[in-house]
Design a protein around this nucleic acid. Structure first.
Lengths: 152, 152
DNA sequence: CTCCAGTAATTGACGTGTCAACTATGAAGC
DNA sequence: GCTTCATAGTTGACACGTCAATTACTGGAG
């Protein structure tokens, strides 16, 4: 028949928008709390987390980009901002003169230490504790299904 | 006991990150398709959608901000960019000299028309069709639960 | 050794988003 | 009328992100 449905129904669209907007609101609240508690942005947190887990709290720039899942350009811009604020430093790489090694500065380590517990608590409060165990499982399965579809 | 868990488990944290990153990836793909198909950003689409649904395809600026759920400042910046590209125009308001009326320009109407079906198809393909009906329902309930928790 | 394709990282231009400050008008109370 | 406060909207400064171009070095083919 003409007009065979390839488009979402009104209800499906409502759920999509709800899903989208709720995710955005949640990210915004978590970001605001992190900022208020420690002055870090989610990007700062991701970088400092990766550095904290690394040997000697330092990583080659490209590797860091892979760890946080960013393009190198994005990382470079972000590191510039973090360096200005004294959260990290960039040093030359001994084994490859093109390369840069990103090092956690003392202020960065300190800020990360201060951030981690409140941030995890906030995730627990606003995500984990907001859902039933079944919903948490379902959220994981939904994410997996969506990610699977994106790989096409 | 000391250390009674207030923090998410490893598994809960994994699901949270998956949920977060998958949402981001999905938004990025939808935005890229919209851009490729019609040159519109998601913001452009939201504005043009609201205008399309309005009487005479025009809305007072503040009302538009409420419709799309943005701060007025954000809307103002975005309208400036859209105006430069000929998607909308801004005109004086007859009943309030402070006010501005945002009007859909011909190019805006055309771009929105061209965008809507492909965009809805993409939502169906990447969201609706990627999930089972039960998962769609669950996604709606998860969004509702998270939103409820945010209202505190 | 020399050339050159590939890699590491940065840069500049620009779109996007927030916050705080500002302009200008409306509206209420006196 | 006039002061005062609220409202409409814009602006500037800056954080964040993408893309394309650029710089500088590496490493292999000849």
């Amino acid at each position: 028949m003409p007009g065979t449905r390839k488009l979402p129904t009104r209800e499906e669209l409502r759920i999509w928008r709800d899903f989208l907007e709720t995710g955005e609101a949640l990210r915004n609240v978590l970001a605001a709390r992190l900022q208020a508690d420690t002055g870090l942005s989610p990007g700062d947190y991701a970088v400092l987390l990766a550095l904290s887990e690394a040997e000697g709290n330092q990583v080659r720039s490209s590797e860091l980009a892979a760890l946080v899942g960013w393009e190198r350009s994005r990382l470079s811009h972000h590191l510039g901002r973090m360096e200005r604020r004294g959260l990290i430093t960039r040093e030359e790489c001994a084994t490859d003169s093109r390369g840069a090694v990103v090092v956690q500065a003392p202020a960065g380590a300190e800020a990360f230490q201060a951030a981690t517990v409140p941030h995890l608590r906030a995730i627990r409060e606003l995500f984990v504790d907001a859902l039933t165990p079944a919903q948490i499982t379902a959220a994981g399965e939904i994410a997996a299904a969506l990610r699977q579809r994106l790989r096409d």
